[in-house]
Structures are given as structure tokens and as C-alpha cells.
Design a protein around this nucleic acid. Structure first.
Lengths: 208, 208
DNA sequence: CTAGCCTGACAACGGTCGTAGTCAGTTTGC
DNA sequence: GCAAACTGACTACGACCGTTGTCAGGCTAG
């Protein structure tokens, strides 16, 4: 019976286990977000985290479980950032343009601040079998944003197609921007994305 | 000095070499288009093609070269199918709606007819390092189609963003349809894509 | 018939991988 | 001081990998 409360070097086993989990997740994010799917093996993660493989299995059943945990962690963080931005920048107003702009700006800032997270959100659901096999959504927070704005007059099929096209469009824009193949300034990117969101939601697109 | 004209079992070395190349490309398409990137190794391809590894190196320097060749083969085929459809269905007319509809219909038919090719065109450029490292374009024929329709009043940045968003939208729709997560009929998908192409190109979207 | 090309079926080398076990040394509460 | 928990550093096994070479047998033009 392991003594969870017993201290070792000043910490309990529970805390050490949690710390090791954190290290592994950080290593996972580092590798997945920079080297891509193929760079993430159990051994590579452990090497990166400077832990022996036996500690990997202390926290995760297998590689899939780690990948999923990394992804979900980044999604939660992005979701929170968008929520905060939409709440703070709009002061509770429901004006779609303002909300969309706050959301897009927050997302672009997040991926610029840490491109690894952008790669995890935008590419890993397609590139990593652990995620693609599950059919996980890319940038679920945006899919959600447009779904809640769509006109009630659209049937399920139209809503699905509209949301699918929007997510595809946005992710491709973000990916291109992050990859340095889209040579526009940040403000213009944000403006274009906002227009895309609004026009998908059926609002008239203002022309700049 | 190998005798290229010398016959063996009725064929020349040149012909046998070409036949083996065909077999390897077919195996590559099979594996990449069904099992995804991770299913394609030199050994796996050779096993699938029922050839020994030494024949792999007769035609390809490495795995990357095979992947690229498979991809380019499918692109060329899709490009030709779209060209034929646009030419045949429009009888030389320049009406954007008709052309877009012919192109989209031809593409959807191609990927339904052979989902492996859809997967290669839509996913491999992102999922396989051999292609993603090169930054190869997804569905280049569509990027081209919209670029040539874009208003001249748009600057380079707007054109790039518009094309990027469209390609992202289209590929996401096709991918979802191919993966069985988009539950709409083919005609509705085609109609939606046509609307997307036309609205991206600045044409008023007719409402159904 | 024969020498040389060609083929298929390996073997070999060095590498990585996932997973699990062992062992010696360290730490800790009693 | 001691038994037990804990740690770090391995080892081990079986699997797959990329690439290259070898060998015995088959085929062919001269």
C-alpha cells in the first residue's frame, strides 16, 4: 500500500506524481507542437521530460492517453482565453461583430504567443492518429461560436455545412499565418476572419 | 551495362522497371489513402506490391520520393477530371456558376469513386511529413479556380486570405463528407460548395 | 552450350520502438 | 538502526524499420 501522505524530499507521493504528470504533458506539448506527431513517442516524451519510462505508465496507459490529455489541456486553455476576451471586451453585450472580433483576436494572440498550442489545436486533430481516430473537432470554440449565431431558419444540414466550412476556412487561415505563408498583418487577418464568421452566420459583411 | 532492350519473360528491362514503378505507386496510394501516413513504410509498400526492397530503390531514392509521386499523380488526375468537366459541361462558356458547379461535381465524384484519392488530396499534404515539409498545396485546382475569378480590385493580401479560407472551407467539407460525419446528400453538398466558391469570388450567392 | 543478366528470397547491420522487470542506492517514519 | 517505500539507471524481449549485400536458380542472346 503506497503511502500517499509520506514525504520524500519534502513532497508527498501524490504531489510528485502530479508534478511528473505536468512534466510529461509539457514535454508532450513541446514535441507535438514543434516536431509534429512523429516526434512523439513514449521514449521521446520521457527523454524530453527527463523521466524514466516507468513514470510514464504511472500517469498514462499509453501514448494515446497522453496526446489526448495534451490536446484537451490546450483546448481548455484556448476556450478560457476566448471566454475571457468575449466577456471582457464586450461587457456583456451580445453584438455579434464585437464578440467575433474579441474571439478571433484572442485566438490569434494565443497562437502567436505560443505557436506550439496553435499547432496542437489546428493540426494535431488531423495529423495524429490518437486524435484523428477519435474524430476530435478542431477549434471547437469557434464551431460553437458560429453554431450559436446561426439563423434558426437553417436546417440541420445547412448548419452543419456552414459550420464545417467556417472551421475549415478559419483553421486554414490561422495555419497559414502561423506557418508564415500568409503575408498579411495581424489586424487584417483578424478583420478577414471576423468577416468570415459574420458572413457565415448570415450577417451582412461590412466592406473595408 | 544493363541491357535495356534485352527481353526477359517477353518484356524489356525498361518495361519491367516501369511496371514495377506502377506497382509501387499503386501500393503507395492504397496504403496512404486507407491507412494514412503511418501505414506507409518502404517495407510495407514493398510487401503490398509483392516486390523485394531492392526494387524500391530501383525507382525511388527514398520514401519521400514515392509519397510525392503518389500525390502528384493524384493531383494530375484530379486536375484533368476537373478540366474535362469544366470544358464539357460548359461548352466554353465563362459563366462562373456553371464552371464552379462542374468543378465541384467532378471533384465530389472523384473522391466518392475512389476515397483513397480523396484522402491523398485532402489529408496527406497535412499529415505526411514528406508533403507537409514541402508546404504542398491542398486541392491546388480549386485554389486556382478561385484565384482566376477574384476581383481585380482586391489586393494581394485579400486575395491570399480569400483563397486560403476557401480552400480550407472546401477541404473541410469534402473531408467531413468523405469521413461520413456530414450527413447531407451529394447534391446539397455540391450546391453549398458552389455557393461558397461564388461568394468567395464576390458573386452574389443565390438563396435556395 | 555458356556467360552474364535478372530475379526472388533471404541475411545482415544498426537503429528505434513499447512495455515491463531488476537492482543498487537513497530516503523516511517508526 | 531498520524495513519498506521510492528513485534512477539500466536490461530484456520482441517487433518494426531503412538500406544494402549475397546467393542460388532462371532466363536469354549469341
Amino acid at each position: 500500500m503506497p503511502a500517499a501522505g509520506r514525504t520524500w524530499a519534502g513532497t508527498t507521493l501524490t504531489d510528485r506524481k502530479a508534478a511528473r504528470r505536468r512534466q510529461l504533458l509539457d514535454a508532450g506539448l513541446d514535441l507535438l507542437g514543434t516536431g509534429g506527431s512523429g516526434a512523439v513517442s513514449v521514449r521521446a516524451v520521457c527523454r524530453h521530460a527527463r523521466l524514466t519510462e516507468r513514470y510514464f505508465y504511472e500517469n498514462f496507459a499509453d501514448r494515446d492517453e497522453l496526446i489526448l490529455a495534451v490536446y484537451e489541456g490546450v483546448v481548455a486553455e484556448a476556450h478560457q482565453a476566448l471566454l475571457d476576451a468575449v466577456t471582457a471586451g464586450t461587457e456583456g453585450t451580445a453584438e455579434p461583430r464585437v464578440r467575433a472580433e474579441a474571439a478571433v483576436t484572442a485566438f490569434v494572440e494565443l497562437i502567436i504567443d505560443d505557436p506550439r498550442k496553435g499547432n496542437v489545436l489546428l493540426l494535431a486533430p488531423l495529423t495524429d492518429p490518437a486524435l484523428s481516430r477519435r474524430g476530435v473537432e478542431r477549434v471547437p470554440m469557434f464551431a460553437e461560436l458560429v453554431r450559436e449565431q446561426l439563423s434558426d431558419s437553417l436546417d440541420e444540414g445547412e448548419r452543419a455545412m456552414t459550420a464545417t466550412a467556417l472551421v475549415g476556412g478559419l483553421t486554414n487561415l490561422f495555419t497559414a499565418y502561423l506557418g508564415g505563408t500568409l503575408h498579411v498583418g495581424r489586424e487584417r487577418l483578424v478583420a478577414h476572419c471576423v468577416r468570415l464568421v459574420l458572413s457565415s452566420a448570415g450577417y451582412p459583411a461590412p466592406h473595408s
